[in-house]
Simulated assay, not measured.
Amino acid sequence: MPVALVIAATVLCIGTRDLFNPELSVWTYVWIGLGLMLFRGWWERWGVHGRTTAVPGFALHSLACLVLCALNPLYGFYAFVGYFDAVRVFRWPVLWLGVVAVAMSTGLSQAGGWRGAWGAPWLYLLLIVINVGLSGTMTLVEHRREEAVTRREETVHQLEVALRENAALQTQLVTQARESGILEERARLSREIHDTVAQGLLGVITQLEAVDIDDPAARARIDRAGQAARESLAEARRAVVALASPHLDGADLPTALHGLVRRWSESSGVAATLVVEGAPSRSPHDAELVRIAQEALSNVARHSAARRTTLTLTFTTDEVRLDVRDDGQGFLISGADAPAVGPPDGASTAGCRTVGHGIAGMRARLERCNGTLTLESAPGRGCVVSAAVPR
């Protein structure tokens, strides 16, 4: 629009040059028009957006419009764009100064140029006041409207943020409720296995040990039955440990892990120790580390054929890290966490896939609390599972 006004004002001034300053040639108006168009191009591209160019550029433009309106009042058609420039450069209350500067040019145009203003100065001053009042009122109304729009946009943004937070909170509550239900069900199954299957197998073992028979063949069958019952009891106890709730029940993390390691070592027959490094302190993710330890120890008992397992719990200023190291047969690693081939010594590939899924589950659990999981293993060299959570 400003360029179109420049062209219109130039054409009008050329057409009426005999009425106002006929000594100015047509080419003078043409060069003035080209200069104004070059200024508008610079102003829209760089001038109005620069901190050091906006105010000086507006001041020089207002002075140029005042001179042009003095030479030919019809330049007032173009000088009107100064009101729009003032709104873009200034803020209240300084904006009033910009409005007054533009009103001096438009008022001079309405007074008939410098001859009209010189002949009736009171009329020129009155026109300036009227222009300031009208344009100032319109500018103030527009300013209030922009403020209202800005407030509405901020309110909508805040509502969107609140809706996203509510959706995230709802998702978190649903996830917590689901996990709580899963943990309660696991705890119930753990109690039922302990109270039924494990106790029943213990009774069977006791009865078989009490049988006194001289027949060697019958004694061998009874011994095999007792051995099978003892192996089944060990598996049941491992299932009880794996299904037990990861909640700490008021104990701190080292205490909970000490109890877990002791119970797991008794049920699996694998020597296990816990080493604590650093100053222990509670974190929001202690229960997750207990569950990670359960999963890792369960994998050791089922797949590693290890003789010794060491858990190292390290407290630093930034994180809590749990390392579960065994001296078992190990396996090759494909990608980040899954075995590429089965472990040596005839272990099944199905078992390896179980290990991979268990580690994937641990990784997913840690990702929910911004933790990390790393895995180190090689055939015949054991395995190290490292889980870290932020403090």
Rank of each mutant, 00 (worst) to 15 (best):
A218M: 10
A336L: 10
T206A: 13
W264D: 15
G35H: 05
N166H: 14
D223C: 02
L97C: 14
P56G: 09
Q294W: 08
W31Y: 08
S348W: 03
A168C: 03
Q170R: 13
G133C: 07
F90I: 03
R178C: 02
L24S: 02
L257W: 07
R51I: 06
L74F: 15
P246E: 11
V156F: 10
T196N: 11
L373W: 04
C383G: 01
G356H: 01
L366E: 09
R191I: 04
T137I: 01
E165S: 13
S190P: 01
I213E: 14
A217I: 08
L71S: 02
S25M: 07
L289P: 02
A101H: 03
T16A: 12
V3N: 13
W27G: 09
T349A: 12
T196Y: 10
C352R: 09
G278M: 06
V30D: 04
T150V: 01
R282N: 06
G361D: 15
S180C: 01
E160N: 06
H258Y: 03
I7C: 08
L19D: 08
P254F: 05
Q158N: 08
H303M: 08
V55R: 14
R191F: 04
F58V: 07
F39G: 09
A244L: 01
A79V: 05
Q110N: 10
L71G: 02
A229T: 12
